[in-house]
Amino acid sequence: MSETFTKTMARNIFYGGSLFFILVFLGLSFHTTRVLPERDHRENINEDVILGKKLWEDNNCIGCHTLMGEGAYFAPELANVYDRFGKNKEAIKAFIKSRPANGIPGRRSMPQFNFSEEELEALAEFLKWTSEIDDGNWPPNIQG
């Protein structure tokens, strides 16, 4: 069987096919942003959560940890750390506060960031809010 394969048709399929899937993707993205409020509990984003996210970014926490599975794989998952620490914000704050400035010999250690009490509270609030996002029941277990 012989066949014809023309550049014109290939071009049409590139432009047409891509445009079709771009439109489908934009439509779905739009729908997603419409239904997200049911899943992300944005009504609970308070001043502390906002400051917590800012601190999370300003200290590049994602450079070691994952958050909802995204980030570096050097340190534990934190989207469920609130649950792992027994739904106890004080435990999270105490952990961050107690990191030794010069590390732990031979082992990985989180740096000492010298956060204020207010900042610690904000970070803990941010992690608590994150743990409450409806993320398809991920991670599979408490260990993250």
């Binding site: 069987m1 012989s2 066949e3 014809t4 394969f5 023309t6 048709m9 290939a10 399929i13």
Partner: peptide, 11 residues
């Protein structure tokens, strides 16, 4: 016996 339409479309 030839393929109807363009191979690009078939892909």
């Amino acid at each position: 016996g030839r393929l109807p339409g363009d191979l690009a479309m078939w892909i």
